[in-house]
């Protein structure tokens, strides 16, 4: 396992795609920050008063769904790239266990997702902290939201690395992951729209529960101001556990070309 991790880390650090993703994540965080600054400036010029944006608002806005898409791309490229070159085949041939191969991939995919998430959060805390200030910001909410977001990033990585390992082909993993995220977002939007039209307590509860069941829904809920951070964290960690337990069972039975 240690040897596999070392080899996978070597490959990751010597590959361009991760650095490109990190640069894109940073660029997106800077664009979001720039837009917020522009909105704040325009609002104060036009309305004559500041919008009162804070680090908290910037932090909520950073849950724009990009971490999910980054996880799809990072896991697919990292894992399916190993299939394409024959790396996974090579590992099995020399006696590496399939479970260990997956765990090594899972750990590094999770690390990539975490780094990409941290890049966004670093922009929030450094640039947001400098520009908007920390006045009125709850340390508990900030830290809890940060942890919920981190757990959600790990959940994305766990789910998509499992899918990539089972689907094997880069195109399949990318298409499946992106379509799944898009479809879930669509369902959540429809449920949200329906929720405002349907006057039913049971339906509202169903929508709330459904939104918290998947990382995509959690992302939307956290961006919209949900404050049940620890429920989100627990559900995300459950996704990580489920992927860690179930993926090896399927991977074990998979015939490799």
């Amino acid at each position: 396992m240690k040897a596999l991790l070392r080899a996978d880390l070597y490959r990751l650090l010597h590959s361009k795609f991760f650095y490109i993703l990190a640069a894109v994540a940073l660029a997106l965080a800077l664009v979001t920050f720039g837009l917020l600054v522009l909105i704040q400036t325009l609002a104060s010029e036009m309305a004559g008063e500041a919008l009162g944006l804070s680090v908290s608002a910037f932090q909520r806005l950073s849950f724009d769904g990009t971490v999910g898409y980054f996880s799809v791309i990072a896991s697919a490229v990292f894992i399916c790239g190993d299939y394409a070159g024959g790396g996974i085949r090579g590992k099995i041939v020399i006696g590496c266990g399939r479970r260990e191969i997956f765990y090594s991939k899972l750990i590094l995919s999770a690390a990539m997702s975490a780094v990409l998430y941290l890049i966004g959060q670093a922009a929030v805390f450094v640039l947001g902290g400098i520009y908007f200030g920390w006045e009125g910001v709850s340390a508990y909410d900030t830290v809890s939201l940060f942890i919920a977001g981190l757990s959600m990033s790990l959940a994305f990585a766990a789910v998509f690395s499992g899918l990539a390992l089972i689907l094997q082909k880069l195109s399949s993993a990318l298409v499946f992951g992106i379509v799944a995220m898009f479809a879930l977002s669509l369902v959540l939007s429809l449920l949200s729209a329906a929720g405002s039209a349907v006057d039913s307590r049971a339906f509202t509860v169903f929508c709330d529960v459904f939104a918290r069941l998947t990382p995509v829904g959690q992302n939307t809920a956290l961006a919209a101001g949900a404050d049940d951070y620890w429920v989100h964290t627990a559900v995300s960690l459950a996704w990580v556990a489920a992927s860690a337990l179930l993926t090896p069972l399927r991977f074990k039975k998979l015939d490799l070309k």
Partner: peptide, 10 residues
């Protein structure tokens, strides 16, 4: 087995 297991970018 069939094609060698290699990383093209390395």
């Amino acid at each position: 087995i069939e094609t060698p297991a290699l990383y093209p970018a390395f």
